[in-house]
Design a protein around this nucleic acid. Structure first.
Lengths: 147, 147
DNA sequence: TATTGTTATACTCTATAACTATA
DNA sequence: TATAGTTATAGAGTATAACAATA
């Protein structure tokens, strides 16, 4: 082999650590959600609709940072899976709700996400966890370009 | 409008905050690097090769968590841009080095990355910054599936 | 047998531009 | 004019499977 251990100049970069840690958690979440044939983006939409019955898909997109145009196929997939339903608010907006038939799966998805979270949160001291989530929120809010 | 502010049940999830904060920093880095016609993945490879002259692309991939198969087009782009060069180590491995003509751009890229980092690190207290980077490393190392 | 580099391919997520219909 | 939803499309990034050449 050429050299199994290289020096990594990115190791002390905040953006790099964020990227790698996020990738680890996303991969784990993706694996965990695959048992429900669900992608992380779909699960997050499902959870927001569940917490905000009657919201529109544009509302959900703004909340999660997903563009309207990219919400379309995600909502379509959830409709096709009979997990959510739409009802017209006015001529252009449609209220989203979890379908009664979807409630059970939504509950399972929430439990899967909670277990995944617990697995990673338990790797940190509670003080560190608080510090991290606070800092991440700061980076997101202060560092984000104004919508 | 339907409702500009929804309740977001993901707000207290570590994975979600990680995902959003990482997206903010990656978007900013992407914008900053576009002045050099460079993508974040390419810049990270350039920095690793710069710090480890003579390493192979498989070495770089292992260091950055990029699969061999996905290294191919990235290395090809850097070769096409005349930023790196290859020399045969043996019949199957090739040593990578920054081309003399590429040194100036590599220096600019490193400065751009450093400025981007400083912009975000300055949003956090130094104690918080240390806590965050330590925690992120823990999540990555303890939470990653064994390669 | 294991590793390097490669091709081909597919999936997930994100991005822009442009259109319609409604408010 | 601004907003909601849509289509079409492109681009990153990541994934698997398979192969040839070499160690």
């Amino acid at each position: 082999m050429s050299d199994p251990k290289l020096t990594n100049p990115l190791e002390y970069l905040l953006g790099y650590q964020l990227r790698r840690a996020s990738a680890v958690m996303m991969a784990d979440l993706g694996t965990a959600l695959s048992q429900h044939d669900m992608r992380p983006a779909e699960a997050s939409i499902l959870m927001v609709v569940d917490a905000n019955p009657g919201c529109t898909q544009s509302d959900v997109g703004r909340t999660l940072g997903v563009k309207r145009t990219n919400m379309v196929p995600l909502i379509a997939a959830l409709m096709k899976a009979d997990l959510i339903e739409r009802s017209a608010v006015d001529g252009r907006s449609q209220a989203l709700r979890i379908k009664p038939e979807g409630e059970a799966l939504v509950a399972q998805v929430k439990a899967t996400v909670a277990a995944h979270e617990e697995r990673f949160q338990s790797l940190l001291e509670s003080a560190e966890l608080l510090s991290v989530t606070t800092s991440l929120r700061t980076l997101r809010e202060e560092g984000a370009p104004e919508l």
